[in-house]
């Protein structure tokens, strides 16, 4: 399998896809990971590699919580723990809440973290403006971003699954958003698809001002969109991300294909990113004249 690096230069894609050095379609070479993963098992595989190579000492992942499909962020320091967290939970997991504790009672100097684009923004803000994050900035060694159109509250997912899809939460094997639908797969093999217009009301309100779809600020970001089933689209963005990704490729962790050679490819990613950002930009503007001569806050203009 050839190294699928098609460009070594930083490609300045001002705007929707962010800066990246490389974009490929990929999947883990490890069957055990693929079996449990949401898509190409990129997140679990890359963390596993980084953990085994000593690039990170632990990773903040979203593992199983107190209720079915309710995630709980925790610090995985073993491959088993990493594996237990694979798969997407479509509701909020406050990943960044652990970022300081990882350096305290866990004693980590090298941290991995996975999260949505907004969580990657939080991590980078925390590194440049570490107001309450003493001694954290230089310890983030691998930040993996996952694409995200929107997130949901737990109650939202519960209503989608239990009311709209008529399934019990604990009976669900997998949830997925793709091909314009919200998919719910049951343990017993049933498959329910809900049109996205049903899901809109359930979206987390804070997502409607989010101006990032493909985790522009991660070291490596990944999602299913753009690649065939079971494969993931991967953007390698930072120098650090590039370094780790190259090593993982050299170690045979991933199968890759040039993004130009897969369907639907980068075109769809760009289209969805543009749609999200355009729509949310509009929301931000509408908030400025939300009341009668009163506006809602715009975090991009400052803290006031």
């Amino acid at each position: 399998m050839p190294l699928m690096r098609h460009s070594n230069e930083v490609r300045e894609m001002a705007g929707e896809l962010g800066k990246y050095k490389l974009c490929v379609s990929a999947r883990s070479a490890d069957k055990a990971i693929l079996k449990r993963a949401q898509d190409g098992g990129i997140v679990t595989q890359l963390f596993k590699f980084a953990l085994e190579e000593g690039i990170i000492e632990g990773a903040i992942v979203a593992g199983p919580g107190d209720e079915p499909w309710r995630p709980r962020p925790f610090i995985a320091t073993t491959v088993e723990e990493l594996m237990s967290a694979s798969g997407t939970k479509y509701n909020i997991s406050p990943q960044v809440s652990w970022i300081k504790e990882a350096t305290r009672s866990y004693g980590l100097d090298k941290i991995g973290i996975v999260g949505t684009p907004c969580q990657m923004q939080a991590v980078r803000k925390g590194q440049l403006y570490p107001v309450g994050l003493r001694d954290v900035p230089d310890k983030i060694k691998l930040a993996i971003g996952i694409f995200c159109m929107e997130n949901f509250s737990y109650q939202s997912v519960k209503q989608l699954v239990e009311d709209h899809a008529a399934m019990k939460m604990e009976a669900v094997k997998k949830m997925e958003i793709g091909k314009g639908k919200f998919w719910v797969y049951g343990q017993r093999g049933q498959v329910v698809q809900l049109p996205l217009k049903v899901t809109h009301k359930y979206e987390q309100p804070g997502c409607h001002v989010c101006l990032d779809y493909v985790a522009n600020l991660a070291d490596v970001s990944t999602g299913s969109v753009g690649s065939p089933d079971g494969w993931s689209t991967v953007f390698v963005r930072t120098r650090n991300g590039d370094d780790i990704w190259s090593k993982a490729i050299a170690a045979g962790c991933f199968e890759t294909k040039p993004i130009e050679q897969v369907k639907p490819g980068l075109e769809l990613v760009t289209k969805l990113a543009t749609e999200k950002i355009t729509k949310n930009q509009k929301t931000v503007e509408e908030r400025a004249k939300f009341g009668v001569n009163k506006s809602l806050r715009n975090p991009y203009l400052g803290p006031k």
Binding site: E57, G58, T77, E101, R104, S105, Y106, G107, L108, D109
Partner: peptide, 20 residues
């Protein structure tokens, strides 16, 4: 931030112990 009435909030892991 770790000390609290009744003990501590968080135990240090074996990894943290080694680092200390």
């Amino acid at each position: 931030s770790n000390p609290r009435v009744g003990g501590m909030y968080k135990a240090c892991t074996a990894h943290a112990k080694t680092k200390m």
